[in-house]
Computed example of a mutant assay.
Amino acid sequence: MGPCACGVHFTIYTPGFLHIQAKGILTHFDGMIENSEGMYLPYNSKEELEAIVREILTLPNAAQIKGSILKSIQKSYHVYSLLELANRITHYEVITIIQETEFNSIFQPIYSLEKDQIFAYESLLRDPLARISPGELFEVAQKTGMQSMLDQKARQAAIKNRAGFIPSGVKSFINFLPSTIYNPEFCLRHTFEAVKRYQINPADLVFEVVETEKIHDIDHLKNIFNVYKREGIGVALDDFGSGFATLEVLVKLAPNYVKIDRSKIDYCDQLAEKQQFLKQVVALCKELGIITLAEGIERKEELDYCKQIGITLAQGYYLGKPGNMLV
């Protein structure tokens, strides 16, 4: 799957053909057609298609076989591994939701500890019909290779839903998955077009990298950050202290914001090890001009300690839960 895959819809035609880019591996399917492009296996229902794919997955060389779903016998332009294809068939109802839904965002407030007022809202993706949880959406997207489309739609929903709800000057923090952005110049153009369409001031936006997966290519992430910054948009490292991000990585990426993970905030008012880490992060960020944000504040004592050591922003259930209405 290449850089254009984020906009490619997946459809199960009924009836249709399973196109396998291999020859001579199957002999017993009725109506099978074989040509220079591979093998075409007809099916009449989603259940029949799934059974065929599962059978092919039992073959010794199944990991090397690629295939696609077609309406008629033709050349395939978007092919998938057999395992990904099987997952897409199994989770087709969720994939349809991802492809067809115009998602909404709800907002969680982020407070300035210096000014004791709302500084921003984090935008969180929601299905407007409440058919599926955000966690299940992203889990299925990861299994089926639909992360790019879902991530793109989530960014656009956050930008659209901001308009008319969040006043100018109050920022929006919007999540993104760096692994879905193959080429920042291409993959982010829809995001930048949405910013212009809804007349959003780019300075009011902050895109935060989500650490749901370990990122190996720091240079690629830095390139994404640079493209956002070039457009006048802020960038943030999310969940800092819980995953790949080290102090050295923080120096190299130089984000505008660093969101310190809840695991480092929980009972930080009582635990010396966490206090040492937080003070080190605060000192380095002040030196680099990076704004610190404490995530997951659930107790007044945590809030007071973060304010005491110079953390600038805070977010968590103690301050405000995600909701449809601004507070």
Rank of each mutant, 00 (worst) to 15 (best):
240 F>M: 08
240 F>S: 06
241 G>E: 04
241 G>S: 07
242 S>A: 15
243 G>T: 02
244 F>W: 06
244 F>Y: 12
244 F>Q: 07
246 T>Y: 11
246 T>S: 15
246 T>I: 07
246 T>M: 12
247 L>A: 08
247 L>C: 00
247 L>H: 01
248 E>A: 14
248 E>T: 12
248 E>M: 07
248 E>S: 13
249 V>R: 04
249 V>E: 05
249 V>G: 02
250 L>Y: 03
250 L>W: 03
250 L>C: 09
250 L>K: 08
254 A>D: 06
255 P>Y: 03
255 P>R: 01
256 N>T: 10
256 N>G: 02
256 N>I: 07
258 V>A: 09
258 V>E: 11
259 K>G: 14
259 K>N: 12
259 K>I: 15
259 K>E: 15
260 I>H: 08
260 I>Q: 11
261 D>V: 14
262 R>P: 11
262 R>M: 12
264 K>C: 10
264 K>V: 14
264 K>H: 11
264 K>M: 15
265 I>K: 01
265 I>T: 03
266 D>R: 12
266 D>W: 07
267 Y>M: 06
269 D>T: 07
269 D>M: 00
270 Q>R: 12
270 Q>M: 09
270 Q>L: 09
271 L>C: 08
271 L>E: 13
273 E>S: 06
274 K>A: 00
274 K>G: 03
274 K>M: 03
